[in-house]
Design a protein around this nucleic acid. Structure first.
Lengths: 211, 211, 211, 211
DNA sequence: AATGAATGAGGGTTCATTCAT
DNA sequence: TATGAATGAACCCTCATTCAT
C-alpha cells in the first residue's frame, strides 16, 4: 500500500513511515491485511471494527496503528490491493484471446469466476463508493479504460465496428458488474460460461433480429 | 437490518401503528421523509443523524419516533419511495415508445435525466446495498424484471431477436446504471440524448461491423 | 385514591381535582387502574410505560393525565389500593379465629393464598421500596402494627406470653413475607395449609425440644 | 437481564475476556466496583448512571466498558460481591457459637450490625429483585440454605427439635431480614444485641406461655 | 373528557484513536 | 515493535409529560 493519492495528511509535521523494517513487521502487516479483508467482507465497513481485525489477526489492538493511520487507510489499501488482484486474474486471460469479441467473453467469464471465488472482494470494492469515493472511482475508471483500449485496438484491427468509444466501454463495464452480481454473487448454480456466451452474443450482435 | 431480509416486524407483541391519523400528522411525516432524503443524500446513511433529519424537518427529535421505529426503517421507506418515484418517471415515457428498441433508448435517456435531477436518489438506492440489502435487491430485481418484460414483449411482436431473456435484461440494467453514474452523476455536461442514442445503437446492433 | 400524604404538589397554584365527575369518567379511571395493575405487575415499574397502561385500558395516551398527575401517582394509588385489598382479604378471616395462635396461622395461610392468586400485588408492593418508599414503609408498618395489636390482645387474654411486642411483630411479619415469596410466588405446588401449620407450630413453640 | 436468568453470556461468537491483565487494570476495576456500590446505594439502580459511576471512580466514561458489558452486568457483579461480603462477615461469627440457638442469635446480631454499617448493601441486594431476579433469588436461597444446614446440624446434635426443615429456615430468614430493615436501616438507635436477644428468645421458645 | 401528536432531556453504549509500559 | 488500558465524542432511542384540537 502506498499513500500517494489523497495524501492530505502528509504535510502536517511528522510523516512517520509505516513501512515495516523487519521481517516480523512484514508478517504482521500481512496478517492485518488478510484479517481486514475477512472482517470488511463479512461485516461491511461500518460494522467492522479495528478490534475485530486485530482479533482475527491475532495481534494486540494497539499494533494496528503501527501499520496504518486509520480505519479508512487500511480500507483504501485493501481496495487498491483487491482491484489489482482482480486485474491480475483477468488480464492475462483476456490478453490471450484470439480476437476482441472473444476477449470480452473471456473477460466476463473470468470476472464471474473471480466474483464467485472471492465474494468479499466484490463487496469491498462496491462499498468504497460510500467510504472512499476516490478509490471507487479510480477502480472503475481504470477497469473501464482497459475495456476501452481493447475495443479501440479491436476496431483498429478491423474486428469490430470503428465507432466504439467510452460509452461502449462503460456500457460493457456495467453489464459485467451486474451479471457478476446476479450470477456470481446471488446465483451459485448458474453455468458461468453459458452466461458469458449468451451475454457475449448480445454484445456482439445486439438485439436486432438477424437472419 | 444489516444485510438481512426486511421482514414485517409485527410479530412480537405490540405493533402500534405509526400511520398518522390526523392531517397534521401526515404533514409531519412528509416533512420527515423529505428531510431524510436530503440528509441521507448529502451525508450518506452512516454520517446522517436522526437529529440532522429532524433539524431539517423543523420538528423535535422525538417526533421522529412517532413515525419511524429506527433510522433503518426510514431508510427502508425512503428506498421504496424513491424506487417508485424513479419508476413513475420512466415508465410512462417508455410505454409511449413506438417499438422496443426505442423504448430502451427512451428508458436510458429518461433514467439519465432523472439521475441528474435527483442525484441523491441514485446514492440512496445504491447505499441500500450496505444498509438494507433486501431493499436494494428488490429494487434491482424489480427494475430488471420490467426490462425483461419489455424485451420479451418486443420479441413477441417480432421487433427483436426471439432468444432474449433474463441475461439480456441484467446486461441492459447494468449498462444503464453505469452510464447513469458516468454521465448522470459524474459528468454534468454530457449530452444525454446523444449518449442514449449511441448506447442504444450498441444495444441494437452490437459490436460487430455491419455494412 | 386520595392525595393526602406527600401532597407537596398541592400548594403551587392550580390544584385541579382529578376526581371524575361523570359516570363515564369513573369507568375510565377504573379501567386505567386495572390496566396499571397488570402493566406494573408484568413489567415492573420502570419497564412499564404510560402508553402501555393506556393501550391496555383502551384509552388515548393523553387521557391518562386527566386522572393522574404522573406515573408515580398512579403507582402510589395502586400500592395503597392493593394494600387495602390484601387487608380486606386477610382481616375478617383472622378476626374469626378462636385464639391468637390460630389467628397467626390463619393470617399466614390466607396471605399465602392471596399471594398465589394475585402475584402481581406482591410484586407491586415490594417494588414500592424503590419507587415510593413512603408507601412501602406505610404498608409494612401498618401490617406489622396489626400483628402487634393481635399479639398484645392475645397476651392480655392470657393466650400467649405477656412480653410480646414490636420485635415479635416484625419477626412474624418477615416470616410471613418470606414464606409468601418462597411458597406463594416460587412454588406453585406446595400445600399452603400444611406450610401454615408447620410455621405456626414453630411460632407457637420455637426451636427448643419439648417432651 | 430483567427478571430472567443470569447466564454465562459467552455463546455467540466473541467472548472477549474482560478480566484485567495488568495491575493497573485491576486497580481500575476495583475503583469502578467501589464507585458503583456508592452510586447504586445512593441513587438506586435506575437513577444511577454509568457516568455517575465513572465520575466517582475518577475514570473516563469509556473505561467502564473495558470492564463491564453493561449497567446490568456490573450490578450483577456487585450483588454477588456483596452477598459474599455479608456471608464473610456473618459466617465465622456464627460458626464460633457454642450451640445452634446461640448461633441464630449471633447470626441475627451480626446481620443487624452489618446492615447498619453497610446500608447500601441491603438496598442493592433488595433491588436485585427488580433488576436481576436470578441474583436476588440466588442470594436468598443460598442464605436460607445455610440457615437450614445449621438447623439440621443442631437437631442432629440434639440441641433443638428434630423436625426442623426448609420452612423453619425461610421463616428465620424472613424474620432476620425484616428486623434488619426495621432496626438496622430505619432505627439507628435501637440496641442491636438486645433486639437479637429478644428475637432469639422468641425463636427458641415461641409465643406460648411457659412457666 | 378524549384524542393523538409534539416535545426534549437524558442515558446507555460504541469504538476509533491515543498513551504508557 | 507489541501490548492492552484509557479516552471521550457522538448518537440512537425512550418516554413522561404537555399541547392543540
Amino acid at each position: 500500500m502506498d499513500q500517494t493519492q489523497d495524501g492530505a495528511h502528509v504535510a502536517a509535521g511528522e510523516a512517520r513511515d509505516k513501512t515495516p523494517r523487519t521481517e516480523r513487521g512484514r508478517r504482521t502487516l500481512r496478517k492485518l491485511l488478510d484479517a481486514a479483508a475477512v472482517e470488511f467482507g463479512e461485516r461491511g465497513f461500518h460494522e467492522a471494527s479495528i478490534s475485530g481485525i486485530t482479533r482475527r489477526a491475532g495481534t494486540a489492538l494497539g499494533s494496528f496503528y503501527t501499520y496504518f493511520d486509520s480505519k479508512d487507510e487500511i480500507f483504501q489499501a485493501l481496495v487498491r490491493y483487491m482491484s489489482e488482484q482482480l486485474r491480475d486474474h483477468v488480464t492475462p486471460l483476456v490478453q490471450a484471446a484470439p480476437d476482441e469479441i472473444s476477449a470480452e467473453r473471456i473477460g466476463l467469464e473470468s470476472f464471474l469466476g473471480f466474483v464467485r471465488a472471492h465474494k468479499e472482494i466484490y463487496r469491498i470494492i462496491d462499498e468504497a463508493e460510500f467510504v472512499d469515493y476516490a478509490s471507487y472511482r479510480r477502480h472503475y475508471e481504470t477497469t473501464v479504460a482497459r475495456v476501452r483500449q481493447r475495443l479501440e485496438a479491436g476496431a483498429a484491427r478491423g474486428e469490430i465496428r470503428v465507432d466504439v468509444g467510452e460509452i461502449h466501454a462503460w456500457a460493457i463495464g456495467g453489464m459485467n458488474v451486474f451479471l457478476g452480481m446476479r450470477y456470481g454473487l446471488w446465483d451459485e448454480d448458474a453455468d458461468i460460461s453459458e452466461i458469458a456466451r449468451i451475454a457475449n452474443d448480445f454484445v456482439a450482435n445486439g438485439l436486432v433480429k438477424r437472419d
